[in-house]
Amino acid sequence: MHPAPSVIIFTTLSGLGFGLFFWLGLGVPDVSGGTAFAFFAIAYALSCAGLLASTFHLGNKKNAIYALSQWRTSWLSREGIAAILTLFLFALVAVPRIFLGAEMAISGVLGSIFALLTVFTTSMIYAQLKTIRRWHQPLTPVMFLLHALGGGALLAGEAKIAGWLLLALTLVLLAMWRIGDQRAAARGTTGDATGLAHLGEVRMLESGHTARNYVVDEMVYRVGRKHAAKLRMIALGLAGALPAAILLLTPPGHITAFLALALHLTGAVIGRWLFFAEAEHVVGLYHGK
């Protein structure tokens, strides 16, 4: 799949933002006044920047308002609604906490639930697609949720919780890749896709186009596969293993936390790029790929 920068920025930043919202809603860290303002500002900045980025690749932005209408069937529509509800709920939490010093415990918990729900709906946009077998597995939402929870805990300054969550993320990434490889390998052949397998071995003789086109650019053209194994190790180390080790094995402090965050973000972006770049769509079989 084409790794569009807008979608990579969207999923990593908004995931991180909603992850921070989750912890803030639970009162972690327990802050008020100016400190609370800073934390909420970071959460809003990340989630809104991500959501804005997601609109960059739209071909027809003027119709964007309709995207909230099909929540009965569409995960993308649900995602939009969940995100807006979460941002609204946290306005009700943030304003009293910053200016009145009020706890807002119940609305906070409700906001946290919606923050996680938003990340889950984001992950289901990808996990629902039967056409991309690598993504169509239960660990896809788990991976998105652990990114949000772990990254969010890091931003919230909860070093030990973040460490354990990023350790869990490391294991989930490994399992997700393993299962994904098996699922992708069982994708079938050009003979299966064309229904011509009974005639013998089927190969593409001539494609239906002489120039590049949308389907090829978006779904058939694959990048990053040559270095997939190396990139996986880099993503695994940077997003999960290294920051987890730093957070769990060193005494908590601003410098280690910042280092862990920088490593995690870099790894998350690389991992997300790879998530798209190495995913194979079944339509590739018609193109002999």
Binding site: G59, A64, L129, N213, Y286
Partner: peptide, 28 residues
């Protein structure tokens, strides 16, 4: 076409490559 935002998700969901985004009009 008056409602399409050109997000491309339908093309991802189609196993047959039957949908193409028109790059001038920005709609599927």
């Amino acid at each position: 076409e008056d409602r399409c935002i050109g997000c491309g998700l339908c093309a991802w969901a189609c196993p047959y490559g039957a949908r193409e985004m028109d790059r001038d009009a920005g709609i599927m």
